[in-house]
């Protein structure tokens, strides 16, 4: 019950704040084209649509969201799964077989990938012929993977040096049993929190990736809404995305409690 209240309050506060900002924005209710004198044609009709209608697409927002949610959901799920699979596997491998040279190589690679803006990762994938939702998922994995690897490796390394792990090793636990029975359960709360953070990051990164790779998802929709100053659409997208992020965070927190 407390969780539901917290969720509702966070959503209400977020929506109220964004709506307030939108309402006080300069030129509220005026289409971007009408603000620009060069494109202000005499035949353009005045827009007076309800708040659940997109000004740019002249369509109910829920229809737009329904059309665009699937590519984003697929890309974000695929990207997160790929990023976590590779990162966790390599973090576990570096805990199981610690090697200074390998660790340094991985660290340099992770740092290089982190220094690239996500949009540029998408552009590079475009250069090599990657297109569509799988390309967004791959770009997400490349952009998120290094961060997940770096933090999960630190979490696992800290857990590996805890007294209960040393005791289990002294008791003769095999390496895989040690990982499955002791290491992962010990690191699970922190890994779950990292999982929630990675969902937030993935949703944010969907904007540049879907835009550049031309995937008609929610990220591209948010970009189109921002370009045309379709503020009702932006506010509702923001509220929807906040809902997803808050639910992911609360799930991680409730499992850890």
């Amino acid at each position: 019950m407390r969780l539901v209240w917290r969720l509702l309050l966070t959503l209400a506060a977020g929506a109220l704040l964004t709506a307030l900002l939108v309402r006080t924005a300069p030129g509220y209710g005026v289409h971007e084209r009408d603000l620009d004198i060069r494109r202000n044609g005499p035949t353009r009709p005045q827009l007076s649509l309800p708040w659940w209608y997109s000004r740019e697409f002249q369509t109910p927002i829920h229809q737009l969201v329904a059309q665009r949610a699937m590519p984003t959901a697929l890309a974000v799920t695929g990207g997160l799964a790929l990023a976590w699979l590779i990162s966790l596997a390599s973090a576990l491998a570096s805990t199981r077989w610690p090697s200074r040279a390998l660790l340094n190589t991985a660290f340099v690679g992770a740092m290089l990938l982190q220094c690239l803006p996500a949009g540029l990762v998408a552009l590079l994938l475009l250069v090599f012929g990657f297109r569509g939702t799988p390309a967004v998922a791959l770009a997400l994995a490349l952009a998120l993977g290094p961060r997940v690897w770096q933090v999960s490796r630190a979490i696992l390394a800290r857990a590996a040096s805890s007294p209960c792990l040393l005791l289990a090793r002294a008791q003769g636990f095999g390496p895989w049993r040690l990982i499955a029975r002791r290491l992962l359960p010990l690191a699970a709360p922190e890994l779950r929190a990292l999982g929630a953070v990675s969902v937030t990051l993935a949703i944010s990164l969907a904007i540049p990736l879907e835009t550049i790779l031309d995937v008609p998802g929610l990220g591209q929709l948010a970009w189109q809404a921002a370009l045309s100053r379709d503020l009702p659409l932006l506010v509702q997208l923001m509220t929807l995305v906040t809902l997803v992020v808050v639910v992911a965070g609360e799930l991680a927190r409730s499992k850890s409690a």
Binding site: L201, S204, I207, P208, A222, L234
Partner: peptide, 13 residues
């Protein structure tokens, strides 16, 4: 908690 690129885009818009 807010996905900050969405927030940035909203505020920029």
């Amino acid at each position: 908690a807010l996905p900050w690129f969405f927030l940035l885009l909203t505020l920029r818009a």
